[in-house]
Write a protein that binds this DNA or RNA. Structure first.
Lengths: 150, 150
DNA sequence: GCAGACGATAAGCACATGCGTACAAATCTG
DNA sequence: CAGATTTGTACGCATGTGCTTATCGTCTGC
């Protein structure tokens, strides 16, 4: 059993993520979004969220950092931030119809680029295999990746 | 042609990369390496490199930042940094035998964890498909990812 | 009702990183 | 030979981000 001469997973994935991020940035700017703002829109689209702390945690951001992002998105009418009637400390976060439109447009443009990239370099079978495997690993809690107990 | 309800590639890959990186750090620390130092060892192992600027570029670092890393690795005898006899401005960089030992030990530990993770959550077919696809995308120049001309 | 807990916000410190400048040593060019 | 170029190095500045603390309004358990 000789060690397969392959590169580390992280050594392949991290630069790939950097390149994909770099490719996204101009597209997002065209839609008037930063990466953080886009993350927020994506996350809020799944379902409305109680509390900004939960949102920050969900997108891996610092809770004190997304305040400006949320204020900006709120000012521009892309998200609503209403106090919870049941507990007025927390703010209920949700996409507005306009926020959903912006999100959809940005994501469509991004996934179009991604699909072009995959189609150009991978076979259809490889494409689905990659996406399937990624979705499995993506669904894992972070601890499962960081700490695989033997 | 309805949009497939999948997450963005980058939205899956970047957090995965973060988790893998977080998993690597303790292992690297056990071997007395930082992430940058490990990147240097990995890159130098492929073949000796002319000039530090080329190295910095190869691992995506700032050329003024890796100086301390290289000095430290040199002090600890893991790499050699000899002036090129043909052009004494440049320093020829290479792994020492001890540097190779450290690199091999660290990489073995890291890939062991990675393989455990993959084996636990993916089928063998998925595992190879993922690695194949990643190696294809990893071999692309960054421009091919960032700017897929139609 | 009141003391402590909790959410949102703001302000500060710390650190890593990127970018530009500057400079010395060595090399190349006219 | 003189000036321009290149490599490695050091330093300062700006930025982005995380982490901590403080404040204010609100809620919950006693």
């Amino acid at each position: 059993m000789s060690a397969p001469p392959r590169r580390d997973l992280a050594a392949m994935i991290v630069p790939l993520g950097r390149a994909l991020t770099a490719a996204e940035l101009p597209v997002l700017r065209e839609h008037g979004l930063t990466m953080w703002a886009y993350s927020v829109l994506l996350r809020l689209d799944e379902r409305p969220l109680r509390s900004q702390a939960a949102l920050a945690d969900a997108i891996g951001a610092d809770k004190t950092r997304i305040i400006d992002v949320l204020s900006d998105l709120g000012d521009r009418g892309l998200i609503s931030r209403t106090p919870d009637p049941a507990d007025r400390r927390v703010r209920l976060l949700a996409l507005t119809p306009q926020g959903r439109r912006v999100r959809d447009a940005a994501q469509a443009a991004i996934q179009l680029r991604e699909e072009r990239l995959l189609a150009r370099h991978l076979t259809p079978a490889q494409r689905t295999a990659l996406l399937d495997a990624l979705q499995v690993l993506d669904a894992l809690p972070a601890e499962a990746v960081s700490d695989p107990e033997p």
